[in-house]
Nucleic acid binder design. Structure first.
Lengths: 209, 209
DNA sequence: GCTGAAATTATACACTTGAATAATTGCGCG
DNA sequence: CGCGCAATTATTCAAGTGTATAATTTCAGC
């Protein structure tokens, strides 16, 4: 007679979080098709049936995982703000450098981001999440740009600031992607100074490296 | 007694191409997990077994499809070069505008691109394809940038040109992504002039809109 | 310690998946 | 026309999928 595996009762929040993390791990490691209920359960140290107990369906779990991912990416860049200097120019330079170097630059995060981008065009809920997090990031960048321009006596109108934020955001996105996916293409530290210089040219500001 | 479905013999190239197109259609419509051998066969107007006849495995077919996708994206942007003016500044502006407006901007292409980016970190063959196509695009951009700088009497050294090409490429990538995934965020024509202005600031050139 | 309810595991099921094999058909060549 | 081979279809199979349900275990409250 085989004995049942022993288990411990965890709180609902802990279990949901563990299942979500396990889902993200699976997707990062092998793409969406690798995130099967069984693989997720193994990674979470749990039995497949438990997924059904905490989520109505696997689809629900995946949606929750993507929401968590997006929130984390946004919060990660927000957290770094606390460690940046108060001087607008240095602050902006630090923000830029942070966005294009590890740990923000990370193949795993990149793979997860690509997986979620893939869902955006055909999933309204995912699109809403993306739109919200995108605008949050861009608006934060816009505020820092406005501060920097004002600081250097080159204030610009709102439309220009908006355009610069859109372009600056795109620049950071593009550099983040390439640094994450082809890390060997760039020498150590090259991406950092490259990004700061490019951002400085975009704003016509002399950002401190 | 049920009669067999009638069929026609197509050439090998035609069948392979049809299967690859069907695969891309499936991935674009429903993500990688929707690209099952049966769905692909239906879309190609063929029986699942035929896939095995032309490709050793489904994995091989998917790899071939991604190679085709990447090549097409690169060739699409190359084709537009023929229609651009010879003047370096106007040429660069046209290239930029082309990259951030339809038909290059396209939710379907974006979804396919995301699907393939997702494979890059864990598939060496995909990484090689990405690296090759990325460098081809960037080198083309670098040459145009060098021409434009020389034209305006602001020649710059090779390292600077390289940096500007990397940043310019990132800027175009980022704008392309956002325009493709959140088309409603930008007014008609806004993305185009925004991109040209931002690119002009990056290079410190007055690009004609 | 008991007890009961909730959490967790175990089992079963219907379905889909990719692949392998056998049966048939189209069609170039004589 | 008919032969033969390769292209294509049809069928089958084992493995894996998500989910539903039943059986067990944990643990808080008495």
């Amino acid at each position: 007679m085989t004995t049942r595996r022993t288990f411990k009762r965890e709180g609902e929040e802990a279990r949901r979080a563990a299942l979500i993390d396990a889902t993200l791990d699976c997707i990062a490691a092998g793409g969406p098709q690798a995130a099967t209920v069984r693989a997720i359960a193994v990674k979470a140290g749990v039995t497949p049936g438990l997924i059904k107990h905490y989520f109505d369906s696997k689809e629900d779990l995946v949606a929750a995982a993507h929401e968590t991912l997006m929130t984390r990416l946004t919060e990660a860049s927000a957290a770094s703000l606390d460690d940046l200097p108060a001087d607008p120019l240095a602050r902006l330079a630090g923000f830029v450098a942070n966005a294009v170097t590890p740990p923000v630059v990370d193949p795993r995060a990149m793979a997860l981001w690509a997986a979620s981008m893939q869902l955006v065009p055909r999933d309204a809920a995912m699109r809403a999440v993306h739109e919200r997090t995108y605008l949050a990031f861009r608006n934060r960048l816009e505020a820092m740009i406005a501060d920097a321009m004002r600081e250097t006596g080159k204030p610009c109108d709102q439309a220009t600031t908006r355009s610069l934020a859109i372009a600056g955001n795109a620049l950071l996105d593009g550099l983040w992607i390439e640094a994450s996916v082809l890390p060997d293409q760039f020498a150590t530290g090259e991406m950092r100074s490259l990004a700061i210089r490019a951002f400085g040219r975009l704003l016509d500001l002399n950002l401190p490296e």
